[in-house]
């Protein structure tokens, strides 16, 4: 449990509160990533994101959740030693040289849902699911990562901030400013990711928070009290432009390669009403995963550009 067990060889990324290095675990020679948290920059001591990341990764142990190998302090900085994950779903989606099949998408969805299901089973909300945070291991496994916005499921009287999740993946209840939301916000994000995997372009790319509502409801219909009880009690609801919900046929046309059960799964993950939106258990038990094609073996999926 000390810095001398690891090397930092190459800086691969820098965020607002952390620098990520690639390195090696000296004892095993394995590649690792070290996330160095710039603790000295925070006037309130240890930063909340750092605390969250450490707190939740310490508890989670699942093949589809990033593995925290070690933590150490060095020069007053907090260092998280994480498993080495060479790429992520955002890179793969954007790289037009990578071809992937419906079976590959199914495999990624399965792994993502299993990972998030495990997070939820531990009573944790991730609150920042997006392709960029679904990392991919050298053997093709999806790893849910970045728990900087995660938190434990609140007690019934606790208030939550609705200012979570990267905009394009933000559930409608969050757009409305809900304070007592549930696991359903994570499921929505996965639903949007599913759509993006099939389209290979972002599904609901709002330009700002207001526009996000517009884009979301234009694609999926403006919710009414009938399908989503009390939605009209949210402030700002009355200003909304009313769009009809898309028919199954319209979805078929938009998601041209999707099977019926793929559409069913997607529709239920993107259900407006969070109370009836499917949870991860329902998603994992859906017909989509039982019908053919079977999900690809992760190791067989091409995740790097194929040189032609």
């Amino acid at each position: 449990m000390s810095e001398s067990n690891y090397t930092k060889e190459k800086k691969v990324g820098e965020g607002t509160y952390a620098v990520v290095y690639l390195g090696k675990q000296l004892s095993s020679g394995d590649s690792i990533a070290v996330k160095e948290i710039k603790t000295s920059e925070f006037k309130d001591g240890l930063d909340m994101s750092a605390i969250r990341e450490v707190k939740y990764l310490q508890e989670l142990n699942h093949p589809n959740v990033i593995n925290l190998i070690d933590i150490f302090m060095a020069y007053d900085n907090l260092n998280l030693v994480l498993e080495f994950l060479p790429t992520d779903l955002e890179v793969v989606i954007k790289d037009k040289n990578i071809l992937f099949t419906p079976a590959d998408i199914k495999s990624w969805m399965l792994m993502t849902l299993r990972g998030v299901y495990h997070v939820h089973r531990n009573f944790i909300l991730h609150r920042d699911l997006k392709p960029n945070n679904l990392l991919i291991s050298p053997d093709g496994l999806i790893k849910v990562a970045d728990f900087g916005l995660a938190r434990a499921v609140p007690g019934p009287r606790e208030m939550l901030t609705s200012n979570v999740v990267t905009r394009w993946y933000r559930a409608p209840e969050l757009l409305f400013g809900a304070k007592h939301y549930t696991y359903a916000v994570d499921v929505w994000s996965i639903g949007v990711i599913f759509a993006e995997l099939m389209l290979r372009i972002p599904y609901l790319p709002g330009q700002d928070d207001m526009n996000q509502m517009e884009v979301t409801f234009r694609a999926l219909g403006t919710p009414t009290d009938k399908q989503w009880p009390e939605v009209s009690s949210f402030p700002g609801y009355n200003k909304l432009q009313i769009y009809p919900s898309p028919s199954r046929d319209e979805l078929r046309k938009r998601f041209i390669a999707a099977t019926e059960s793929a559409l069913t799964l997607m529709e239920n993950m993107l259900m407006m009403n969070p109370q009836t939106r499917w949870n991860t258990i329902q998603c994992l038990e859906s017909e989509y995963f039982k019908e053919l094609p079977a999900p690809s073996d992760p190791a067989d999926i091409n995740i790097f550009s194929q040189k032609v």
């Binding site: 240890l46 310490q58 933590i71 302090m73 434990a152």
Partner: peptide, 18 residues
């Protein structure tokens, strides 16, 4: 005074916070 031992505390807690 409050922050002086914060790192030491987190380290002694073995980074286990939940």
């Amino acid at each position: 005074a409050i922050l002086k031992y914060e790192f030491k505390l987190v380290e002694s807690l073995k980074f286990s916070l939940l």
